[in-house]
Simulated assay, not measured.
Amino acid sequence: MSFIKLSNLIEELKICGEQGIPVLIEGQKDERALKELGVNGNFIKVSGSGLKLFEIAEIAAQSSSRVVILTDFDRKGNQLAKRLSEDIQSLGSHPDLRFRNTLMGITRRFIKDIESLPRHLEQLELEENPSGGQWYYYH
């Protein structure tokens, strides 16, 4: 997976955030990681909210006709993505799994969760630019 490909995907995610499109994530660490990458926006945490999944889907679907689902790439994350996607679709909104699926495909053997993205991006940058020219995505 190239640094450029991942960087471009994060840029697209930033734009979604700027447009107010809700981004469903699992928890606080995921939000911190995305903010570290410069992605801001309407993050809705799935874990620890005390709400049922359908209630979370309702909140997201009411706020936008499109909802980005960005759960982790493990079994639990896959189950959450599937359930949320079905619920959001049943509510008449469009569940966007493209970011999650693309990230899963390009980071497959390296990371299993959203919170690992900043470090993974750093490592890719070092591999592609070992001379140390740092690329900052932050703010």
Rank of each mutant, 00 (worst) to 15 (best):
residue 1 M to V: 02
residue 2 S to W: 00
residue 2 S to G: 10
residue 2 S to P: 11
residue 3 F to Y: 12
residue 5 K to W: 08
residue 7 S to W: 10
residue 7 S to T: 03
residue 8 N to W: 14
residue 9 L to P: 07
residue 9 L to R: 07
residue 11 E to H: 02
residue 13 L to S: 02
residue 14 K to I: 02
residue 14 K to Q: 06
residue 16 C to W: 00
residue 16 C to N: 07
residue 17 G to C: 02
residue 17 G to V: 00
residue 19 Q to C: 11
residue 20 G to H: 00
residue 20 G to R: 01
residue 20 G to M: 04
residue 22 P to T: 07
residue 22 P to K: 09
residue 23 V to G: 13
residue 26 E to M: 07
residue 26 E to Y: 09
residue 26 E to P: 04
residue 26 E to A: 03
residue 28 Q to A: 13
residue 29 K to I: 03
residue 29 K to F: 09
residue 30 D to Y: 00
residue 32 R to Y: 03
residue 32 R to H: 02
residue 37 L to M: 01
residue 38 G to Y: 00
residue 41 G to E: 02
residue 42 N to Y: 12
residue 43 F to I: 01
residue 44 I to P: 04
residue 44 I to M: 02
residue 46 V to A: 01
residue 47 S to C: 04
residue 47 S to T: 10
residue 47 S to G: 09
residue 47 S to K: 13
residue 48 G to F: 06
residue 49 S to F: 04
residue 51 L to R: 07
residue 52 K to Y: 08
residue 52 K to N: 08
residue 53 L to Q: 03
residue 54 F to T: 10
residue 57 A to F: 02
residue 57 A to I: 09
residue 58 E to V: 04
residue 59 I to H: 02
residue 60 A to T: 01
residue 60 A to M: 08
residue 61 A to W: 04
residue 61 A to M: 08
residue 61 A to L: 11
residue 61 A to I: 06
residue 63 S to N: 08
residue 64 S to V: 11
residue 65 S to N: 13
residue 65 S to W: 11
residue 66 R to T: 15
residue 67 V to W: 11
residue 68 V to S: 13
residue 68 V to Y: 11
residue 69 I to K: 14
residue 71 T to H: 00
residue 71 T to S: 07
residue 71 T to V: 15
residue 72 D to F: 05
residue 73 F to E: 08
residue 74 D to E: 03
residue 74 D to R: 06
residue 75 R to M: 05
residue 76 K to C: 01
residue 77 G to H: 00
residue 78 N to F: 07
residue 78 N to K: 15
residue 78 N to V: 06
residue 78 N to C: 10
residue 79 Q to S: 12
residue 79 Q to E: 07
residue 81 A to H: 11
residue 82 K to W: 03
residue 82 K to Y: 12
residue 82 K to S: 11
residue 83 R to Y: 13
residue 84 L to I: 03
residue 84 L to R: 00
residue 85 S to C: 12
residue 89 Q to C: 13
residue 89 Q to M: 03
residue 89 Q to W: 09
residue 90 S to M: 06
residue 91 L to W: 08
residue 92 G to P: 03
residue 92 G to E: 05
residue 94 H to A: 08
residue 95 P to S: 12
residue 96 D to N: 15
residue 97 L to R: 05
residue 99 F to E: 06
residue 99 F to N: 04
residue 102 T to D: 14
residue 103 L to M: 12
residue 104 M to H: 15
residue 104 M to T: 07
residue 104 M to N: 09
residue 107 T to D: 15
residue 108 R to H: 14
residue 108 R to Q: 05
residue 109 R to G: 14
residue 110 F to T: 09
residue 110 F to C: 04
residue 111 I to Q: 05
residue 112 K to E: 05
residue 114 I to H: 05
residue 114 I to E: 04
residue 114 I to S: 10
residue 117 L to Y: 10
residue 119 R to A: 15
residue 120 H to M: 14
residue 121 L to C: 10
residue 122 E to N: 11
residue 124 L to H: 01
residue 125 E to T: 03
residue 126 L to G: 07
residue 127 E to F: 00
residue 127 E to H: 06
residue 127 E to L: 12
residue 131 S to M: 02
residue 132 G to W: 04
residue 133 G to D: 11
residue 133 G to E: 06
residue 136 Y to Q: 13
residue 136 Y to T: 12
residue 137 Y to L: 15
residue 138 Y to M: 05
residue 138 Y to L: 01
residue 138 Y to V: 00
residue 139 H to C: 07
residue 139 H to N: 05
